[in-house]
Amino acid sequence: MGKPKRPIPGEMMANVEAGYEQQLCDLVRSSGRLMAALQAARSLGLSSWCIGAGSIRSLVWDGLHGFQQPSDVDDVDVAYFDAQAPRGLDAELQERLHRILPNVPWEVTNQARVHEWFADTLGATVAPLSSLDDGLATWPEYATCVGIYLDACGALKIIAPYGLNDLFELRVRHNSRRASVSTFMHRVQSKRFKERWPRLSVCNP
């Protein structure tokens, strides 16, 4: 018998990513709180949506740190994409979610209208986003650019435009796609990443 064939680097990376995807799905299924939030969000009937950002990031980092109690999150971010939706739909959807799970700090955002928020709130001109995946790809840290949703059959699906390496390897790196360095550094300090999860590596931009 010949020697076993060594996997090439691309295959190794794919295997690692698949392992992280399985770990993420296992962690999500183990969280009754997050599964209930996902089921509530699915009931809205949106065609392109996910729960992402801090809810997913905190769940993974808590698990990797062996925490028995889940960390508090400022909000549960429901991101969706609908270029035809009226401006007031975010608030309407948020109210519907509050009626289903009133103790969850919901935050609903149509990624198709984020450029309007930049213009109205910051006076900044940015290009419209083209999809939900494109929206996630602009979030300030690569480890944060991850979303989960339930499909029509109840299966968990992952959106991760940059993969899951930073999230599972406990790296906090600046994503310069849209967030400035100052915004990134402010988030690192205000969210107390290193204090709350000591094993993190915060990479200077």
Results as ranks from 00 to 15, higher is better:
residue 132 L to Y: 00
residue 8 I to C: 00
residue 160 A to G: 05
residue 152 A to H: 13
residue 2 G to K: 05
residue 111 Q to S: 01
residue 121 T to S: 08
residue 158 I to M: 03
residue 144 T to Y: 09
residue 84 Q to E: 14
residue 137 A to D: 12
residue 49 W to Q: 01
residue 97 L to K: 01
residue 84 Q to F: 13
residue 73 V to Q: 02
residue 93 L to P: 05
residue 54 G to P: 14
residue 200 L to C: 10
residue 70 P to I: 11
residue 121 T to M: 11
residue 155 A to C: 09
residue 154 G to Y: 06
residue 99 R to V: 05
residue 36 A to Q: 10
residue 130 S to Y: 01
residue 120 D to S: 12
residue 25 C to Y: 13
residue 47 S to R: 11
residue 191 K to R: 15
residue 142 Y to F: 15
residue 27 L to P: 01
residue 175 N to M: 03
residue 47 S to E: 13
residue 195 E to Q: 09
residue 113 R to G: 01
residue 121 T to K: 11
residue 201 S to G: 01
residue 119 A to I: 05
residue 134 D to V: 03
residue 111 Q to L: 15
residue 130 S to A: 15
residue 193 F to K: 02
residue 60 V to D: 07
residue 1 M to W: 11
residue 16 V to R: 09
residue 19 G to Y: 07
residue 160 A to Y: 06
residue 47 S to Q: 14
residue 93 L to G: 10
residue 204 N to T: 10
residue 56 I to Y: 10
residue 22 Q to P: 04
residue 101 L to I: 07
residue 13 M to D: 12
residue 139 W to E: 05
residue 132 L to N: 03
residue 195 E to P: 04
residue 65 H to A: 08
residue 61 W to C: 15
residue 167 L to I: 00
residue 9 P to N: 08
residue 38 L to K: 03
residue 103 N to R: 10
residue 69 Q to H: 07
residue 37 A to L: 00
residue 15 N to E: 06
residue 174 H to K: 01
residue 75 D to G: 02
residue 29 R to K: 14
residue 173 R to L: 02
residue 85 A to C: 05
residue 155 A to I: 12
residue 150 L to T: 07
residue 80 Y to M: 12
residue 112 A to P: 13
residue 161 P to R: 04
residue 31 S to Y: 04
residue 172 V to M: 14
residue 13 M to S: 07
residue 11 E to M: 11
residue 127 A to E: 15
residue 121 T to L: 11
residue 179 A to D: 10
residue 75 D to L: 13
residue 188 V to D: 04
residue 37 A to C: 11
residue 118 F to G: 13
residue 24 L to Q: 00
residue 169 E to I: 00
residue 22 Q to I: 15
residue 51 I to H: 10
residue 181 V to M: 06
residue 147 G to M: 01
residue 159 I to K: 07
residue 66 G to M: 00
residue 118 F to Y: 15
residue 144 T to I: 09
residue 120 D to K: 10
residue 53 A to V: 13
residue 133 D to E: 15
residue 48 S to Q: 09
residue 170 L to C: 13
residue 82 D to H: 12
residue 4 P to N: 10
residue 54 G to E: 15
residue 9 P to G: 12
residue 113 R to V: 12
residue 114 V to I: 15
residue 188 V to N: 00
residue 148 I to W: 04
residue 82 D to L: 07
residue 168 F to W: 01
residue 135 G to K: 09
residue 136 L to T: 00
residue 181 V to Y: 02
residue 25 C to N: 02
residue 201 S to P: 08
residue 44 L to E: 03
residue 187 R to D: 09
residue 186 H to D: 07
residue 141 E to P: 01
residue 180 S to W: 04
residue 70 P to V: 11
residue 124 A to M: 13
residue 96 R to I: 05
residue 55 S to H: 09
residue 203 C to G: 02
residue 193 F to C: 05
residue 173 R to K: 03
residue 36 A to F: 09
residue 13 M to R: 08
residue 52 G to E: 08
residue 57 R to G: 04
residue 173 R to N: 08
